[in-house]
Amino acid sequence: MPSQGIDRATRLVLIVDDVPENLSVLHDALDESGYSVLAALNGESALIRARQSLPDIILLDAAMPGMDGFEVASLLKADLATSHIPIIFMTGITEPEHIVAAFKAGGTDYVSKPVRTSEVIARIASHLQSARKTTQARSALDAFGQATMSVIPETGRVTWQTPLARDLLARYFNIRIDLVPPIVRNWLRTSIACLRSQPGTPLQPLKVIHASSRVIFSLHSQSADDEWLLVLSEENDKKSSEQ
């Protein structure tokens, strides 16, 4: 019987493993716990299924022939449509370098093989609960028309953005919409370093001027282990003079 606290009726889990027996065991355990389950036997199929179905969470085998789990995770995280999906790696290698590689590729968590289904189910429930709270907060920002985005400072990759933030980036910068421009990335890194070395110090926003208007970037908060939330606003000299 599913545990209380999470509505699992619409929760979709994608399991990726090149060993059919592993897929079968996990599929049955998750199905009995009230989840809907999709399965993929290799990295290529995993990418297709993830992009088509947008699962709520992914269980991903790290070591697979051909495209391994690290490459799959990196490609999913680089795609705005799938970057928000939590990924739990399944790995039989627990060397520190292997675990670090899993998190660098975008993993949210990992479990050691052979997996214990009770542990997997508990971790899925925990991460889905966190993901649901994040989704609710982001939906509220969307609804109120806030220009907000979540960025990974190390790479400058945008993991999530509201429509208004996407529009401002498109109008002010000739860039890919999944990356902030270097000026924003450098300012973000400097601001975070200042915040960590001198807590409580007021941070200066970044102003980027274009003709008679400007877009202003403000550092809001840390939204995840490696992600920071930015708030954007726009000022227009003509509108200001008319007020």
Rank of each mutant, 00 (worst) to 15 (best):
L206E: 05
S74T: 15
W187C: 08
T135E: 01
G34W: 08
I6C: 00
V111R: 06
L141V: 01
E154K: 09
S221K: 14
L41A: 12
D31N: 15
S221E: 15
V13C: 00
L203W: 08
G106D: 05
L141I: 07
L47F: 02
P202G: 02
G145N: 13
H127L: 11
L229P: 08
S212D: 14
R189C: 11
Q243S: 11
Y172S: 15
D109A: 03
A147I: 07
L164I: 14
V115I: 12
S74F: 05
T155P: 07
H210C: 07
V16E: 00
E95C: 07
T10Y: 05
F217A: 11
N236D: 15
A122E: 09
L188H: 08
Q161P: 00
L14V: 15
Q52C: 06
A46H: 08
I209D: 04
R157W: 14
S223P: 10
G145L: 14
Q243Y: 05
H84N: 04
L23H: 01
M67C: 07
V231L: 09
L30Y: 11
R138I: 02
P55G: 03
G34P: 12
P163V: 09
G34D: 08
D68Q: 00
S213E: 15
R189D: 06
D167E: 05
M64L: 02
G200E: 04
R138Y: 14
A137S: 06
S24A: 04
L26R: 03
A78K: 13
H127A: 06
T94M: 06
D226M: 11
K77R: 15
F173W: 15
S241V: 00
R189W: 00
Q243K: 12
I177W: 06
A131V: 00
L38I: 09
I15D: 06
N236H: 11
V72K: 02
I183K: 13
D79A: 10
D18I: 01
I48M: 09
P2M: 13
D142E: 14
V151A: 10
A170Y: 04
L38P: 02
E32P: 00
L164T: 13
I93G: 05
H220E: 15
D17T: 10
I216N: 08
I175D: 12
H84Y: 01
A62S: 03
A101T: 10
I58S: 11
R196T: 11
S139A: 10
Q129T: 13
L179G: 00
H27T: 09
I58K: 01
D225T: 10
D79W: 04
I48C: 03
E95M: 06
M1W: 00
A165M: 07
T91H: 13
P55L: 02
H84W: 01
P182E: 11
Q146C: 15
P96V: 04
V115M: 00
V158E: 07
W187E: 04
D68K: 10
M64N: 04
R49T: 12
D61Y: 03
M149F: 01
R171D: 15
H98K: 10
A78C: 05
L219T: 06
A165N: 04
D237A: 13
E119Y: 03
R51G: 08
I175P: 08
S53T: 14
P86G: 07
M90T: 05
I57K: 01
A46D: 09
Q161R: 03
S130W: 05
A63C: 03
Y110K: 12
A46V: 09
M149A: 13
R123W: 14
L128W: 01
I183F: 00
I87Q: 02
E32N: 07
